[in-house]
Design a protein around this nucleic acid. Sequence first.
DNA 1: CCTCTATGGCGAA
DNA 2: TCGCCCTAGAGGC
Length: 280
Amino acid sequence: MPEGHTLHRLAADLNAIFTGTDVRASSPQGRFADSAALIDALAYRTGHAHGKHLFVGFGPPAGTPGGDDFESDHWVHIHLGLIGSLTFTPLALPRGAVRLRLANDDIAADLRGPQVCQLVTTDEMVARMAELGPDPLRADADPERGWRRVHASSKPVAALLMDQRVLSGVGNVYRAEVLFRNRINPFRPGKLLNRRRWREIWSDLLELMPQGMRANRIDTVRPEHTPEAMGRSQRVDDHGGEVYVYRRSGLPCHVCGSMIRTQVLEGRNLFWCGRCQRRG
DNA sequence: CCTCTATGGCGAA
DNA sequence: TCGCCCTAGAGGC
């Protein structure tokens, strides 16, 4: 379930639950056993996200000679990939393939199926963050960095939005939905995209993604297009949110009624409304 | 039991 | 562009 909002939410939840508590680390599945044993001897410091990457910092326990109570030089770099999950459960025996469990006396955070779960140094973390484009969920994000790449590329804007060097944190749901909401033709080449359109995309993500982080799901329909406002039934789908086009191929557009279309673009399913989305 | 799918990204060809 | 990695849930037989 991982686009950027999920990772930022997880970082906030980890900090709320584990900061200042005695956190144990283990790898019930065994594939992260050596690193888990290493951080098990350290204290939980802080977690933060950049795009779809999550970094969880550990340092020497308080009172360690020469140890700094605030700095971390051991970071667990986590990327959930397509199918990974990090879930919080009341302390109990782990179920399924738990790569990493962080637990205090009350609650456990279980990591399953990550694409990346690796111990890195601060320098390595900084290097990985530097490869990422601006993240709408970070206060330091500069949309101009993204625009420069978009403006220089002949790739479709729908492909560019998925490129984590252009923007970080946007995935298949947000890219489809933000293009719909701004009525942009997903096949418009980046170099032909109007600069104003880019600024609209960015400011829309600045609304959508924090909302997604708060709700812990992706909802993109405006008040006038909600099920209640339009008298249609609630969406029933495993991703849970109310959307305009994502996974709605063959269904009528909430705005114009024409059939939502789909096509594989660079290996991912793209969804759009051919009638509403004509701008560039 | 099987197959398919998934909000991702990598490397081989 | 394709295959592959990771895991879980849904649906078919």
